[in-house]
Design a binder for these strands. Structure first.
Lengths: 331, 331
DNA sequence: ATGAAAGCGCTAACAT
DNA sequence: ATGTTAGCGCTTTCAT
């Protein structure tokens, strides 16, 4: 493998000078600079990242903590972040984590092993050790789509958005509105809270039997949950699914039983993943400003890392109710 | 930051001994080993990866080259690979690349900068320099879903699979079969080739006006392409879309014009992404053994890296025609 | 079984 | 403007 010494030797100069050229420092004779640049070009030399990272005590790398089972929304999100981070000159390292302590510890270790410049979380880690460590080393962090303690986060007002989703249904005359929600995240709690509050505001009695739990936020579990609902008799005219994927699964199960959407049952989702606009029927859903979330998150982290505008604060972005074809007046 | 010296000092031993313990080497007094292990546990010490990578001349990291605009199939694929690689003890580094020379060069540089143990390509890079470099450093590589030169690849017989897809349509009585295909990859050429051959075998005349090009393999371009087809008059009874995403977009556009699928027009896709089984109607498609492809690829790379079973050879996995609801007898 | 010392490839402080 | 040198945190000879 070719190294900085090889380059230096070939042009008859010291590694220090070559290093200066590579890093665009001053105090190098323009002619020699050209000469070195040319040689680097020719040889295809690229500095070793580990060596650099070691002496610089930083890696120009940003981590993104994401669940192994990332959903479509998260996939779109990290895709956007990755592009933005790259434009800022960072490498991106994905830290996949599962829903268990072991995996979270593993993630923490990785964080320690790499000298990351900072990182983004689009997955809520439970372990308190994790956050303790962050505090102790003062590593720049931004969360996206949720909040944790005093860490700055970029997100929408989930509760209010869910409230509005239910309101849309209520305005269409629905009173028997089921909720399909999954696991143990803040967004699920907030969306559920919005559901209850909207029902309350509409004078509809709170009925826990209308709430169904999916084990995961996938289409498969959406199908399963809807089957279960149907088994208990079709005493609902509308469904609020906590994510679009759950909604798509639910619509599938409804169709399989000959129930028409939206004629017989209205379904509203949440997130507005890309496919929501391509399904049959197109999905009415809460649009999250996914591009903006991704960009803002990357920017906030960049700012933290560079110390410019060190304002560590949350940003609540605005969502939108996107009315498409899966909701209609109550039959 | 806590380092190996700190650990050593605290137990009153040399860094060398601590290093031996960390790496599970022999010749350490069992008592001291325990003592050191305990301290590491307590302090939460994790060795610095850069330092380690530097002296070891390897990183225990495997790269996955993937297009920035990865599609759903590729997303599922890398997810599987990542899990498998982790189980082998590798870190995974994603190398996103765009469809231009600059980005490919960038990717190559990254490959040089990191001391990767090996890498996987699920994206065809064009630049010959890229492959030259691979040759020159003899870096372990495996391709997935395509082949390049003598690099071992894991894939299905794309052409034969496409042939079978068309055959399915022909058996249903279709003769006016359009093709929707996108960009410049080997799989697109092979799927197109299968289309033509199957038509030939069925005695259907080759008609290039039946072939439509999508700029990207996305649902959006699927819609656009189908609109264009429809504009030219509906003189087809079936469509073979080169990917499921294209198919889903096409079905959407068909619906928008009041064309029923499969009653009026049959649509068949390729890949069998997760959602293909949840759309309305469910998508008939070619099932790629995505889990197997992912696992086999990771395994093949692992073997190359470890020199065990250094057989550098291709594996052609078997696909399956998955008949669902989007195809029917010709009207 | 253990420690001292060299060195991985690079950058930066200090000389010149 | 350029070179010399030290050192980032670790592993691995080579002594002992």
């Amino acid at each position: 493998m070719i190294g900085i010494k090889d380059i230096a030797k070939k042009v008859g100069m010291s590694p220090a000078t070559v290093s200066r050229v590579i890093n665009g420092k001053k105090h190098v004779n323009p002619q020699r600079r050209e000469q070195i640049l040319k040689l680097i070009e020719e040889t295809g030399y690229v500095p070793n990242k580990a060596a650099r990272s070691m002496v610089l005590q930083r890696s120009y790398t940003v981590g993104i903590v994401i669940p192994t089972t990332f959903n479509i929304f998260q996939r779109q999100l990290f895709s956007i972040m990755e592009k933005r981070l790259e434009s800022f000159g960072y490498y991106t390292l994905f830290l996949f984590v599962n829903f268990n302590t072991e995996s979270e510890t593993e993630c923490l270790n990785r964080l320690k092993a790499e000298k990351l410049d900072g990182f983004i979380m689009i997955h809520e880690i439970k372990s308190p050790y994790f956050y303790e460590y962050l505090e102790s080393v003062n590593l720049p962090v931004v969360t996206a789509t949720f909040r944790y303690g005093s860490i700055p986060g970029i997100h929408v007002d989930e509760e209010k958005a869910a409230f509005e989703a239910i309101n849309h249904l209520v305005n269409l005359g629905h009173r028997k509105i089921n909720l399909l929600v999954g696991g143990d995240f803040s967004f699920s709690k907030q969306r559920m809270e919005g559901y209850y509050k909207a029902l309350g505001a509409a004078g509809i009695e709170r009925d826990e039997r209308r709430v169904f739990l999916a084990r995961q936020y996938t289409m498969e579990y959406g199908i399963n949950a809807m089957r279960e609902m149907l088994l208990r008799g079709r005493d609902f005219t509308a469904l609020f699914a906590a994510t679009d994927e759950l909604a798509i699964g639910a619509i599938r199960a409804l169709r399989d039983e000959g129930v028409r959407v939206p004629e017989d049952v209205s379904v509203i989702g949440f997130d507005d993943i890309e496919i929501a606009n391509y399904t049959v029927p197109r999905l009415t859903t809460i649009h999250q400003p996914i591009t903006e979330i991704g960009e803002e998150t990357a920017l906030a982290l960049h700012r933290q890392i560079n110390g410019s505008n060190p304002v560590k604060q949350d940003r609540t972005l605005s969502y939108q109710l996107s009315i498409r074809e899966s909701t209609a007046r109550v039959p």
